[in-house]
Structure formats: C-alpha cells, structure tokens
Write a protein that binds this DNA or RNA. Structure first.
Length: 196
DNA sequence: GCACAGATACGCT
DNA sequence: GCGTATCTGTGCA
C-alpha cells in the first residue's frame, strides 16, 4: 500500500467557509503515523461561522485557550475533546475571523486494516461515519491541535468531485437557539458513509 | 428503533 | 470545585 498523496496548498483554505465546507467534500484526509498511512474521502462536513453562530465555540468572539486557534491562520487543525471522544475541524476564514469546518465523516480509502485495528471492529460502514469515530480510526488526537493541513503528517489532498451535494441542519447542537436550523451541514448525496 | 450512561477538558462561580 | 459539551457504545424492545 504505497499510495502517495499531495497536500492541497494553503490557498485552498482561503475561500469562504461555507464554500470551503463544500469544497472539502470528496477530498482526501490523510494521516501518517509510525504504524502506517491511513486516508479517506471526506463525505460530510459542517460549517461553524464564528461570532454570528450560536452553535460555534467562537460565538460572540469568545476567545479562550481552546478557541484561540480559530482566530489564527486558515488551514490549521482544531482538535477538540468532548466526553470520551475527539473531534477535528479545519480552521477557516482570515486572521481574527474564528470560522471553522468540522469534518464529520469520511469514506475509508487507504490503511483500512489499520483503522479496523484502532477501532476494534470490522464493519466498514461504521468505521468512520461519525466525527468521533473517524478521529479514532485515523489516530487524530490533541497532539494534532494546531497542525498545518498543508503538510504531513496530517493533511488534506485532492480526491474526487462529488456529483451531488446535499445540505441540511447541523447535528448535536440542540441548545443553540435558532442557529440549530441553519443548513450548514453538507454531505455527498447518496454516499452511505455519512453519519446519518 | 430508542434511551442512557460514560468519563474528560475547559470555562465559569 | 461544578456543570457542560460540535459524541459513541451498549442494552433493551
């Protein structure tokens, strides 16, 4: 399994967050480690629009140790621990604009055996169809906080261009007032690896 | 299918 | 110190 992936350059992350969320669909998320390389197509994302978005950690420009990274440069990894799991975001927007795109699901592409081993299960469909699942499968954790997505060991490479993209309300933000209705969740239509 | 417990970093009192 | 969070696995119907 000697596949090579070429990271997308910094300029890719310059586009507006909502557009980036859609552009990321079909791209390849790659993580290299001592155990080997694992990669998968991104099939589901969510946009978090910073100050105006009640569901975002950076709502109202709340700047803390955790959200600090979102105020910085685009194309950086924002990893976040919740309960027993870890989630990964791509920081978007220009400096001082705390926007981000959450990666919710991927379709296993490379290093599948490694993912199965890390997840401790065989069911391909359930391997990475959720934000906490894919991070475990790809061994993404707080050690990846602040990592640059345009170079190894954690990066995003071109993949395929999805035929159809669907959008709808985001998930897991019930206590976020009217923001929970915003259709800022995007997924590859018809792909069975999306979370729900 | 649905409800529920799990177990951790962080922000607020 | 305590309550909350961009969730998941499990147990039961």
């Amino acid at each position: 399994m000697e596949e090579r992936f070429i990271p997308l350059g910094k300029s890719f992350y310059k586009q507006p967050t909502l557009q980036l969320a859609k552009a990321l669909l079909g791209c390849t998320l790659v993580k290299e480690s001592e155990e080997g390389i694992s990669a998968g197509y991104i099939v589901e994302t969510e946009a978090y629009m910073g100050p105006e978005d009640r569901a975002a950690h950076s709502y109202g420009n709340r700047r803390t140790k955790r959200t600090e990274i979102m105020f910085g440069e685009h194309g950086i990894a924002y990893t976040y621990v919740i309960h027993t799991h870890c989630l990964v975001n791509v920081v978007s927007g220009p400096l001082e604009k705390p926007e981000a795109v959450l990666i919710r699901a991927i379709e296993p592409l490379s290093g599948v055996e490694l993912m199965k081993k890390r997840r401790g299960m065989e069911d391909l469909r359930k391997l990475t169809n959720g934000p906490g699942k894919l991070t475990k499968a790809m061994n993404i954790n707080m050690g990846d906080y602040g990592r640059d997505f345009s170079q190894p060991p954690l990066y995003i490479a071109p993949g395929y261009v999805p035929e159809n993209i669907s959008s709808g309300p985001r998930i897991g933000i019930d206590n976020s007032g009217e923001a929970k209705g915003y259709p800022w969740r995007f997924w590859v239509a018809g792909n069975s690896f999306v979370s729900r």
